[in-house]
Design a protein around this nucleic acid. Structure first.
Length: 626
RNA sequence: CGGGAUGUAGCUCAACUGGUAGAGUACCUGCUUUGGGAGCAGGUGGUUGCACGUUCAAAUCGUGUCAUCCCGACCA
């Protein structure tokens, strides 16, 4: 084999254990000073004074900072990622991640990789583009709407862009799996997903194309899954804590993933899209769409019904005003069309007026694919009058009665006649459960101030950004795709599965949302794109040389350094430094240099301190060892 | 998919009742300045989202369309 000239293969390029970056040794590196071609001296604005391949020079950093945020940035994380030059929008829900941002992404990925390996995960890679058949087999091809991008390849074969990878991983696993001896195992990847979201928002918080860490575990039985699920849960807590986030963990809906148990990891934030229901006293926590709570009844003897005219007063608000009662003394009907079987069915939910319907609960109780608001025609067809509907006199369709109704006496309900309501409607006497649901069901949305299920404490409601989720999938996918094994009793069984996801870009944005101030990002130690920001102040070559010497020393010890070598005024450099939020800032100016010291300042706060340059490395080690 | 708003320079925004494009910032050149987004001078950069229409004349008026953002709906 021909020798590559100039490369000594016996002396491989060392790899930094901390950053996983290969580094060229200093002795071999290109290290030049370059005077201005026009003046021959060090020019005012020289972007190529020093060239050094092993540290990042700000003069060479791709991506600039912005004085003002783009006007479409609403959330803080969007503002700071944009202003810092870490991301740039290409189209709705599609972002370019620039080098500084990509370095933070790589730090997050490295951290996640460690934790996945710690729970025996094996990293792999599955394709983004998949044949539609795979999704038809699992049933999700029909179930999912237009978020799933479908297209045909050149030979007219129907394909999809994967929104997630349960089908693919189960297919692959089914081809490898034959014996219970192979179980359990966990496979995971960093992989693109595409979801054609109807509404992208919040910068990287809700996008259409994104990288997700998705993990899938396979087990011989439920016990084994339960045990592993807890390990994954614990690993998730560690991941988020290392990102500086104390996650709020809630029970969640399993949606079209199937399965029974699922948890979401949330960053508590008023900007979040999910409503979370918490009970600090009992420790109960759940997403509001599935949270359970106790109904406070309205006791009383059933009084005779009485019709009252309520001309053109159909809303709960109007009726309560007119009759001088509270919302909780009313009964309202919320009507839907539900796609359960081949054709849509009419569904009416009877619920007390002070509560809202949880459409998630309705959907789950009905096992419906899609729920949509009923049209007036559908309502009339069921024998009801729009605006004045009542369960009394409903002729067809599915009636669901919420748990709040039977415990409340003498409610005001619609009269099933335009302009009429009826007082003192009572469950049991005037109407009852009929048809598919023979008993009252829980279909109300939990909210702040309602009673916790035990009936003694009040619930709290907060908002959150979902940063991770874990599901006990069960055998939905393994059965659909034939992922089976032979058990020790010789029987053939489907693998019991779990899945575990984290959106990497959303986590990055959440870290910023969770950790910033009025000047910019404050990176947690493990996520910062660089560990040290060295700022050379002043134009004397000696200052820059000292900074470079320090950067060399720190880089050799495994710290990654960003060196601001620009000929800019100090104010500009400090502003950018704050914007970028690297944990340790080491500045060197004329005065500090005379004392042989660097100015040590932590982005997270605290006073500036002067340390002799010989001490810097040890202090840095101590700081990063915490 | 409903409701609202907005599209003018890389970013933030002006331009009256129609008269032919402007500032700040950013960027480039030079000089001065150098500890918290400097000053002066000169300069680059726009088919005013797109199409059609009205008009002698359209950033401006009308119609359509596309895009973006916000509130809902939706969201493994």
């Amino acid at each position: 084999m021909a020798e590559t000239p100039g490369v000594d293969l016996s002396d491989p390029i060392p790899i930094c254990p901390q950053t996983a970056r290969s580094r060229v040794r200093w002795e071999d590196s290109l290290w030049t000073t370059c005077p201005s071609p026009t003046t021959g001296s060090f020019p005012n604005r020289c972007s190529a004074t020093y060239i050094c391949p092993t540290m990042q020079l700000v003069s060479k950093l791709f991506g600039r900072t912005l004085r003002e945020a783009p006007n479409d940035a609403e959330m803080d994380c969007h503002i700071w990622l944009s202003r810092g030059g870490l991301i740039r929008r290409l189209a709705s829900g599609l972002y370019a991640v620039q080098p500084l941002g990509q370095r933070a992404i790589r730090k997050i990925e490295a951290l996640i990789r460690q934790e996945m390996e710690a729970i025996d995960g094996q990293e792999m890679s599955l394709p983004l583009v998949q044949p539609s058949e795979l999704w038809e087999k699992s049933g999700r091809y029909q179930l999912i709407g237009s978020e799933l991008v479908r297209f045909k390849d050149r030979s007219q074969h129907p394909m999809v862009l994967a929104m997630t990878h349960e089908e693919a991983v189960t297919q692959v696993a089914s081809e490898e799996l034959s014996s219970h001896r192979q179980l359990p195992f966990m496979l995971w990847q960093f992989q693109l997903k595409f979801r054609d979201e109807p509404r992208a928002r919040g910068g990287l918080i809700r996008v259409r194309e994104f990288t997700m860490k998705d993990a899938y575990s396979f087990h011989k039985d439920q016990d084994c899954l339960d045990e592993y699920y807890q390990r994954a849960y614990d690993a998730y807590v560690r991941i988020f804590r290392r990102c500086g986030i104390e996650p709020v963990i809630v029970q969640s809906d399993t949606g079209i993933m199937g399965g029974k148990v699922a948890h979401e990891f949330m960053l508590q934030s008023p900007m979040g899209e999910d409503n979370l229901i918490l009970c600090p006293e009992t420790g109960y926590s759940a997403n509001a769409e599935i949270a359970v709570f106790a109904r406070e009844g309205i006791p009383g003897e059933a009084l005779p019904t009485e019709s009252v005219p309520t001309p053109s007063k159909s809303s709960i608000e109007d009726v309560t005003k007119l009759l001088g009662i509270e919302a909780k003394n009313t009964l309202k009907m919320v009507m839907y069309g539900a796609e359960i079987g081949p054709k849509p069915e009419f569904v009416a939910v009877a619920i007390r007026g002070d509560l809202d319907v949880s459409e998630t609960k309705v959907k789950n109780a009905l096992k419906a694919r899609v729920l949509f608001a009923a049209t007036d025609d559908m309502i009339r067809e069921a024998g009801l009058v729009p605006g004045y509907a009542s369960p009394v006199g409903m002729k067809s369709g599915i009636l669901m009665v919420d748990l709040s109704v039977p415990v409340s006496a003498n409610l005001v309900a619609g009269g099933n006649e335009a302009g009429m309501h009826v007082r003192n409607v009572n469950f049991g006497r005037d109407f009852t459960c009929t048809g598919r649901f023979t008993e009252p069901v829980d279909v109300a949305q939990a909210a702040e101030g309602l009673l916790e299920i035990g009936g003694t404490h009040r619930l709290k409601a907060v908002r959150g950004i979902e940063i991770g989720n874990i599901f006990k999938l069960g055998t939905k996918f393994s059965e659909a795709l034939g992922c089976t094994f032979q058990a020790d009793d010789k029987s053939i069984k489907p693998a019991v599965m779990g899945c575990y996801g984290i959106g990497v870009g959303r986590l990055l944005a959440s870290v910023v949302e969770n950790s910033h101030d009025k000047d910019g990002i404050i990176w947690p130690k493990e996520i910062a794109p660089f560990q040290v920001h060295i700022v050379a102040l002043g134009r004397e070559p000696e200052i820059l040389e000292d900074c470079v010497a320090l950067a060399k020393e720190l880089e050799s010890a495994g710290f990654d350094c960003l060196l601001d070598d620009r000929d800019e005024r100090p104010g500009v450099k400090f502003k950018d430094s704050d914007l970028w939020g690297i944990p340790v800032r080491l500045a060197l100016g004329g005065k500090s240099r005379e004392q042989g010291c660097f100015e040590w300042k932590l982005r997270s706060g605290g006073a500036m301190e002067l340390f002799p340059k010989g001490e810097i490395l040890d202090r840095l080690k101590a700081f990063y060892q915490d």
